[in-house]
Design a protein around this nucleic acid. Structure first.
Lengths: 349, 349
DNA sequence: AATTAGCACTCTTCTTGGTCGAGTGCTAAC
DNA sequence: GTTAGCACTCGACCAAGAAGAGTGCTAATT
């Protein structure tokens, strides 16, 4: 059954009110605060209908109404007003995201930080875990007489490095030669296509003893593994204490425990990353039991046609959806723009 | 006034009991659990004395006794048994700290992690912020046609790097020449003694236009700044939820907020770092109001004769001091040993 | 036929008062 | 000096009652 205009207006009012106050909303309150031109009795009848339809629920018989997950869902899909940011808001975010950032990790971290401070919820973000990332350089740099540094830089300027201990002193020239061979084999390749055994045999043909190569190859593998692992940023974890729904220590603890499980968080964000654009997951819609009283707004960001990562805002189901989505929309666009700048048009086709 | 043997035994019993149960300890409990050969009445009298002297206090008239900060202080200084770790405990920590760690940051982070999981409290650690750190290498490595990577490695194998955008394409050879000049000027120097202007003039004498040098110098400065900033690691923040003293949300929030303020934490740890060895700060002895119901056990670690950083365990004043100190003793020793290994005897005199 | 006023009813929250039990402090006996 | 005994204190717990917010239903109104 569809909702008529009046029911929509009332549902809208209830959700707005509950989001603001965190208290069950009564018919009188609606009649007073919102100019609907209806008496509390009429509203009462409508609210009873909305409850029958599953959009609202009552904590107990003589309390006001609280939106159900279905109610929030309808609100998010049909009712809420997503606004454009003002010129000033837009500008300040824009500046914060383009200022001196040459690295994709830093970009995503800052975006997450911004979302968390603006919305007062918890923000989570993952850096790209892109198999498509290509290697821009891979070198071995001498550090001292017995140690060297293996460096890998990929498109997006993601840098990984690893100190290695050389089995015996190797001359700078030799390291340079090795670096050149590494680059010849690796530059422009994706991680998947990197063929380490081929490098080993080329180097051996060049009279490099295998024992000296071992730590270098090991370090390269280490760097590649690190590149495959996306990093996860978390901001504003303690913001939940601002919300009455978490004034119970057990609730708060459960929430914070979820945030401690990086692996789980990554999965949650990842599952939203399949879809394009902005996704809102409300309460029971979340897979994870521990956040079934929370909502998660995620946005994906892309390079070219490929979704490469996502950023999310996690808060109580009683979330300021319109605010979060409005900002998320904008930030998402900015991230995409900045990513294109960082990856650079010419180095990655 | 000094405490006689019997008072000490009773105080010891009260503190032990309270640490275990978190409930005020009554005279009957002591008489029953601990074989002191005294009736509850006698113990009652002694406890009244201990209260007069300030070692114990009563939450309310008809409750048992709770140790005061002064009581804990006496316990820590005179009563508690610090034990040696068993061979197995020692071995497993030893292995965890030497396994594949070539970097001082990673070492400290793992030590912190170990302390937090073993003790179930929150652990904090700062990496060295050493002006005495010397530069082992400084290079500019080409990344692609328009970007390069500036790398600085110091003793202790602390690595910092920064991507720069070159104003115009510079050949690999030139970058190599620049790297050589950087190394000539910087290797073996401490950060303080690094003379960037001298490098600029040397490079200019070598016909490098200043505009091309600017981003390189800037990146070096960035790396040096990063090196001056010590990193801070935090483990087991949510452990506080295990303790009844934090079942009040406001308490928990206050505690977690302190942990969010990296700057404050650094100061707290730093102020303990003046002293040598292990320090225990109990309740009101802490500067910071927000942790006046907590105790902090800190240990410093050193390279050579210089204290270069510290690691701390933060928990309720009702802390298992003897356990924490026992483990801290051992971990501190291990960190010192590993640091000497990582810094290496020959590269830093 | 839709809306509204009115009212009885329900359920939570807050307060009050009373009991229970743990633990103390004091006194007198050992 | 130690201990048994007892009156006393105070928080924890529970039940009963009052207050208040909000509902659902019925009957009156538009």
């Amino acid at each position: 059954m569809l909702l008529d205009e009046r029911k929509k207006r009332i549902l809208h009012a209830v959700v707005d009110d509950y989001i603001n106050t965190a208290e069950p909303v009564g018919s009188r309150t609606i009649a007073r605060k919102h100019e609907l031109g209806l008496s509390s009795a009429t509203i009462r009848n409508e609210m009873a209908d909305l409850e029958d339809m599953g959009y609202l629920s009552q904590p107990h018989t003589s309390a006001g109404r609280v939106p159900s997950d279905k109610g929030y869902r309808f609100y998010v899909d049909e009712l809420m007003n997503v606004r454009e940011l003002t010129a000033e808001e837009a500008e300040s975010i824009k500046v914060a995201l383009e200022n001196r950032i040459n690295e994709i990790g830093e970009l995503v971290r800052r975006a997450s930080k911004i979302m968390s401070t603006i919305t007062n919820y918890t923000s989570v973000a993952v850096t790209p875990q892109i198999r498509r990332v290509t290697i821009k350089t891979a070198r071995v740099v001498p550090v001292d007489s017995e140690k060297a540094l293996v460096i890998v830089v990929t498109s997006g300027n993601i840098i990984k490095n690893r100190i290695i201990k050389l089995p015996e002193s190797i001359s700078d020239n030799t390291l340079n030669r090795i670096s050149n061979i590494l680059e010849a084999h690796l530059v422009g390749k994706t991680l998947e296509k990197a063929n380490l055994p081929a490098i080993v045999s080329t180097l051996e043909r060049d009279y490099m003893p295998r024992v000296q190569l071992a730590p270098i190859i090991e370090a390269l593998e280490y760097c590649f593994n690190q590149l495959n692992e996306s990093e996860l940023y978390l901001e504003g974890a303690t913001n939940i204490f601002n919300f009455p729904e978490f004034r119970d220590v057990f609730k708060a603890r459960e929430f914070l425990n979820v945030l401690d499980e990086k692996q789980t968080l990554r999965r949650i964000l990842g599952s939203a990353a399949n879809k394009n654009g902005i996704t809102v997951q409300i309460g029971e819609e979340n897979e994870l039991d521990a956040i079934k009283n929370c909502s998660l707004v995620t946005a994906t960001y892309s390079f070219g046609d490929n979704v490469i990562g996502s950023i999310g805002v996690l808060g109580p189901t009683r979330m300021e959806y319109s605010k979060v989505v409005s900002y998320m929309n904008f930030i998402r666009k900015r991230i995409n723009i900045e990513i294109n700048r960082i990856f650079g048009e010419n180095t990655d086709e």
